[in-house]
Computed example of a mutant assay.
Amino acid sequence: MDTPTMEVTALFPNQSSESCGGESSTENVIFGVYYILVFLLALNGNSLALWIFSRQRGISSPANVFLLHLAIADLSYIIILPLRATYHLTGGHWPFGEVPCRVAGFLFYVNMYASIYFLACVAGDRYLAVVHAVRSLKVRRPLYAHIASFSLWALVTVSMAPLLVSQQTSEVDGMTVCRQLYREKASRSALISLAVAFTPPFVATLSFYLFIIRSLRRGTRLEPALKLKALCTIGLVLFIYVVCFLPYHASRATYILAYSHPGISCQSRRRLMLANRLTSSLTCMNGALDPLVYLFGAEKFRGSLKKLFCRDKAGVSGATSGELKGTHESSLSAKSEF
């Protein structure tokens, strides 16, 4: 994110802000409606998940701990989506003032990188459960997962804290814009931060899941149904990375490298800014997709959903849940926590 230094009209005196950077009315309507839809889907899914997690007497596995923190991260960002929708539906004007703009940008990055790291933690826990089921029993404890989670929260929060103390709004053509929604920072230092924040968890997640797939192909004691569930979990998490996170970071890298190039045209700058806004909007979709990860990745979450929506079969569901819990307590069944 960038402390504003000059307006678009000052950057490009021969071009209007509409042609060089401002959103068209069609773009604003599309973005506004999109954020409202994502808000409704993500709010319902993650509120339900958090309610289910909070009603459980004990979180039985590290994966459930990481998924609980992932739900909290999603809700912390979902609450500002109506502000983003309002910004676009009012024609690219930010009516809320400086502090909400700072908070919106801060929560955007905190949620995105907290989600990326918690998904990496889930992948690491799945790797230990499948590939090193017995040897990892002493390490895979909920207490350790909570310690790791709070450490990640502290790391991400401190890293993004400068956004709360730097100027984030400016006046462009008589309208107040929030820089994170209008034009993000395009410095080379931002490129380094981008690589450091995204590359390690992405590579770790991809590596963990490739090792799991190799282990499943070689043959494990997992039943076919559990193998399928494991592969579905892996596919879903990688899908979230490919759709929600990878496009944004690829677009941001291109934007940073090309935006300040002296030979680039105003129209090319506008396309770069539009691509940055579009891929930025995709990142919040992870809040609507993460509840599917809870469904596949948390045993108690599935059991609670069955009891919630199939109350007439609560007895059967409870018995099944008890059997699965008993199986989990053996060392070999640590592999079945998908």
Rank of each mutant, 00 (worst) to 15 (best):
H93T: 11
L164A: 03
G32H: 10
G105F: 01
P82G: 06
L48E: 10
S166Q: 14
S76Q: 09
F118W: 02
F309C: 05
R84Q: 14
V139T: 10
V158Q: 04
V131L: 01
C121K: 07
Q180I: 12
A298R: 00
A298K: 00
T199N: 05
L181H: 00
R141T: 13
T157S: 09
G235H: 06
L222C: 02
R179S: 10
L257Q: 08
L68I: 08
V165T: 11
S321C: 15
G263Q: 10
G263Y: 08
V29G: 03
E337H: 09
R135Y: 06
I79W: 03
G219I: 05
P291F: 07
G235S: 09
H328M: 14
L40M: 15
V103Y: 01
G318N: 13
G22D: 15
Q56I: 11
T26S: 12
A49L: 02
W51N: 09
L206S: 04
Y117A: 06
L40F: 13
S115D: 05
I30K: 08
S215R: 08
V122G: 00
A123M: 00
P62C: 02
N44Q: 10
A230S: 14
V38N: 01
S333G: 15
A314Q: 12
G263H: 11
L238K: 05
E329H: 12
E299T: 13
W153T: 01
V316F: 14
G322H: 12
A114R: 05
E27W: 11
G322Q: 10
